[in-house]
């Protein structure tokens, strides 16, 4: 049942070469993380360290370690996790509900509004940035986490689109049968469609998770108190203005930061692909 006929060995060789290329920045990041500081700054860098300094990891994530107090890593991890979980929760709840309205219910203005929704994906971020900042400033939310997670509870065009496409692949008969059984729309949504939509919801959750975890711009604009920083923003603290950056520690911290994301992706990818496949990003 092969879809196409490549020789397996060739495929593996090509894949290994390609993945080496793809993974090279990451590899270098990890090997730099365990190098002594001198070796991170040599003009002719080597891939492997002369000695493996594993304790760069604890050093990088311990607050007030030795001569250089870096970042309160655990505090930042907690902040990041909190914002990320709230965003995931918010986007899963809101987008499913909204997508249901677009996919399965009839209401005046639906199709026009859907077209507008799609068009909003084309609005460049910088257009929104300034007035949105003004809005949060007006609400007095600048400096708090609220600008980072509250919008997630109001849906996003991309996720709505994805979920709508998914809901549309489920036969209408299912809803109609439930309706005959006396189910309300709410019941149909929660008891019939949501259980079926798990893979698509997983995609939305994952996209949100990865986007929020690595988001730099949002925290940079809205967070001002250092105690509220997220990890991606905190990483910047390793870089100093006129050089003297502890590259090994920066890379160690960066490795620790992306580790959870890689793990989540590795274990969730099957569902991830399935979710995208079944929702079908097709007209």
């Amino acid at each position: 049942m092969k879809a196409q006929k490549f020789s397996t060995a060739t495929v593996h060789i090509v894949l290994i070469v390609m993945s080496l290329i793809f993974v090279s920045p990451l590899l270098w990041m990890v090997t730099t993380a365990i190098k002594p500081i001198e070796e991170t700054m040599t003009a002719t860098p080597t891939l492997l360290p002369s000695k493996f300094l594993w304790d760069n990891f604890p050093k990088a994530v311990t607050y007030g370690s030795k001569e250089l107090g870096y970042i309160p890593f655990l505090l930042y991890a907690r902040n990041t996790l909190m914002v990320t979980l709230l965003c995931v929760a918010g986007s899963v709840c809101s987008n499913a509900v909204v997508a249901y309205a677009f996919a399965r219910l009839r209401w005046p203005g639906r199709d026009a509004f859907f077209a507008v929704t799609l068009a909003t994906m084309m609005v460049p971020f910088p257009v929104l940035m300034v007035p949105t900042f003004g809005l949060f400033k007006y609400l007095g939310w600048v400096g708090s986490f609220r600008p980072l997670w509250v919008p997630a509870f109001f849906g996003s065009a991309f996720s709505i689109f994805l979920l709508r496409q998914f809901f549309r692949t489920i036969p209408m008969e299912l809803s109609e049968a439930a309706k005959i059984d006396g189910c309300s729309e709410v019941r149909i949504f929660t008891d019939v469609l949501l259980p079926l939509a798990k893979p698509a919801l997983a995609v939305v959750a994952l996209f949100t998770f990865m986007g929020t975890w690595n988001d730099f711009m949002g925290p940079m604009i809205y967070l001002s108190d250092q105690e509220t920083f997220t990890l991606s923003l905190g990483l910047q603290a390793y870089q100093s203005q006129h050089g003297g950056t502890q590259w090994n520690l920066l890379m160690a911290a960066a490795t620790v930061v992306i580790l959870p994301v890689i793990v989540v992706f590795f274990f969730a990818q099957k569902m991830f692909i399935q979710g995208i496949a079944t929702s079908g990003l097709k007209g």
Partner: peptide, 25 residues
């Protein structure tokens, strides 16, 4: 969030000072 911003230190005025320097400086 309200708690994390500017905890006052026992009946003193807290002056918040942001500095560009990191590390040794």
């Amino acid at each position: 969030e309200d708690a994390t911003t500017r905890k006052p230190v026992a009946n003193k005025v807290t002056v918040l000072y942001w500095e560009k320097w990191t590390g040794d400086e």
